[in-house]
Simulated assay, not measured.
Amino acid sequence: MELIVLWDIDHTLIENAGLSKEIYAAAFSSLAGRGPSEPARTEGRTDRLIMRDMFLREGLLVPDWSDIEATLARAGHDRLGDLRLRGTALPGVQEVLKAADARSGWLSSVLTGNIAANAHVKLSAFGLDALLDLAVGAYGADAELRPELVAVARERIQRLRGVPADVPVVLVGDTPRDVEAALGTGSGIVAVASGVHSPAELAAAGAHEILPDLSDTRRVLGILESFAGHAKRPRTSSDRPRTR
């Protein structure tokens, strides 16, 4: 059975200990010549939207994206050591990524709002990068809206790995935006309440498979297997969310 699994990073695979907002603040300061008056608003948005919003809220012109991306990459690289000291891989993540990587016919990559350089920093800090096919992932520089990243990942996977276009896709993430991206693109969704959003919030967004975290490898794989080898059937109003 074939399956494409696309994992979110922050608060799904790792705890960044506030370093993401430090990266955004450092990039803003470098470009604006002063610090932001308030922290970046993240909540599952892409880096394109996060940085644009910071400049607009401060009443400043938004720099060219190429300048923003380069500055974000420098800020992320500079904090690799801090991330290793202050952050952590979340419970069960190493085990579940190893298990997914070992499954015949499965392709495991990322769908994240981070730019590719900072996604690699965050994953490599905890040795997770080798467990994912990062070349075919979708990143925060690829599109402004999260649902658009699903098509980006699908195209890369088909072009670079030869995976047929009809292979099911499942997103794994911790925010309502992950849920919305999945539902809006006909993808499966496994929601994890390991970030700031509660199971109730994830259910309200439309998630039907909700886990507290990824610590139970067998259960996670069992849910993923339910999506493998067939298109996900449409949900109806009679379906009830299940927290596990």
Rank of each mutant, 00 (worst) to 15 (best):
R86Q: 07
L123A: 15
I223Q: 13
A193F: 04
G87Q: 02
V196C: 03
K21G: 15
D213V: 04
S108H: 01
S37I: 00
T46L: 05
A193G: 10
R161P: 04
L134W: 12
E2W: 04
R244S: 15
P36S: 12
L19I: 15
E38C: 07
A143E: 08
G18S: 09
P176W: 04
R57Q: 13
S215K: 00
G162P: 06
A182C: 13
T112R: 01
T185D: 02
L183E: 11
A143Q: 06
E22V: 09
A130C: 13
L111R: 05
H197Q: 11
S187G: 05
L211R: 02
E180V: 13
A181Y: 01
R45Q: 04
P176L: 08
S30M: 15
E2T: 12
G188V: 03
D178W: 03
R48C: 01
L107W: 02
A130D: 15
V121I: 11
R233M: 09
R242H: 12
F55N: 08
T88R: 14
G140K: 00
A231W: 01
H11V: 02
R84K: 06
R235K: 11
E69N: 07
A204H: 11
H197F: 15
P176Q: 09
A119E: 07
S238V: 11
A191S: 11
D216E: 08
A141T: 06
T71P: 02
P212W: 00
T12P: 12
E38T: 07
V170A: 12
A191F: 01
A191Y: 00
W65C: 06
D64H: 06
L183D: 09
L6D: 11
S109Y: 01
A153D: 04
V167Y: 07
I223M: 14
G59E: 05
G81V: 00
S30A: 15
D8H: 04
L61K: 14
L13I: 09
L56G: 09
S187N: 02
P39F: 05
